[in-house]
């Protein structure tokens, strides 16, 4: 039985189609990543699966329970961490944890083992108010609170947004450990680099899945050669690249532009000559391996950053 399965979910907010035709399967003990920009519909999907809102179309089940009929049963077995920091800022770390333990009809002592790894990292601050914690600490506390009742499925809506890179890395290490304990995890993130840490990912944009597969397969599906192009004038470079008829796509990435070329029409040498002719200095063209973000852009045909 799949931990989570959704079949052709659709949801409208007024005229806005927030989700349409969403289907997904999260296997037991899998980490399933929802990768997509803000406003893609990730939170809406989480809320439907967490029984907080009703889908307009389609069916979904969590641990075999229907999200509409058996909402009460689902609420007992899932841990949900909403996108925003949703704990009580005026309560201390320990008070928050104790409170949520009792919300889930348990105690911190009883289930200490299930949160021990994570809680130990924030234990030195247990008497500090949650509002005074750093972003990374807050997320660890929120994760503790979501785990205190030993859920079999975890819904984590953008747990690493606004968290520093070191804490982000730690957070994913924790998720891997939870996975080893057999907890199925559905996690969303706008960070493409986190995608490769999932067992399966779905690329989501404008309420639709662009593709669902393992990160490796999605990268394999990238069917053209990818070039990284740099020069001294990056913004002029981008517009010049886009004017070249031999360039099939060109997107701005951090410190370089990622470019694909039309087969047979243009190669890297042609491109170098073209850019030199436009008086670009220090032009550097390198062949690179695509990552999930490249795949996302190729699929969506649009630069999301």
């Amino acid at each position: 039985m799949n931990a989570v399965s959704a079949n052709l979910i659709g949801k409208k907010y007024g005229k806005l189609q927030a989700l349409s035709g969403i289907s997904l399967e999260v296997g037991e003990g899998d980490i399933f990543g929802l990768i997509g920009p803000d406003g893609a519909g990730k939170t809406t999907l989480f809320r439907i699966l967490a029984t907080l809102i009703l889908p307009d179309e389609g069916t979904a089940s969590v641990c075999g329970f229907d999200v509409i009929k058996d909402y009460a049963k689902i609420r007992k077995v899932v841990g949900y961490m909403p996108g925003r920091f949703s704990l009580y800022q005026d309560l201390t770390v320990l008070e928050n944890l104790t409170f949520f333990a009792s919300v889930f009809h348990t105690t911190v002592e009883e289930n200490y083992d299930s949160v021990k790894d994570i809680y130990q990292q924030i234990e030195p601050f247990k008497n500090r108010r949650a509002g005074a914690l750093s972003g990374g600490m807050k997320q660890k506390l929120a994760l503790c609170c979501a785990l205190i009742h030993e859920p079999s499925v975890l819904f984590l809506d953008e747990p690493t947004t606004g968290v520093d890179p070191v804490s982000r890395k730690e957070f994913w290490t924790m998720l891997q450990r939870l996975k080893q304990r057999g907890i199925s995890i559905l996690v969303s993130t706008p960070y493409m680099d986190e995608a490769s840490l999932c067992d399966r990912i779905a690329l989501i944009q404008n309420g639709k899945f662009l593709k669902t597969d393992t990160p490796q397969n999605i990268i394999k599906g990238f069917d053209s050669e990818l070039w990284s192009v740099r020069s001294d004038h990056m913004s002029k470079l981008l517009s010049d690249l886009r004017l070249n008829e031999g360039v099939s796509s060109s997107f701005a990435f951090g410190d370089a532009h990622h470019v694909t070329l039309k087969n047979g029409k243009c190669n890297s040498h042609d491109l170098s000559v073209y850019l030199d002719g436009l008086k670009h200095t220090n032009v550097c063209i390198q062949k690179i391996e695509p990552n999930v973000e490249d795949c996302f852009m190729q699929l969506s045909g649009k630069n999301i950053l």
């Binding site: 029984t51 009460a72 949900y80 961490m81 909403p82 949703s86 919300v103």
Partner: peptide, 13 residues
Amino acid sequence: ENGTMEILLVSPM
């Protein structure tokens, strides 16, 4: 407003 209602709703309570 703070989103804590979401967590409280997604609980056995």
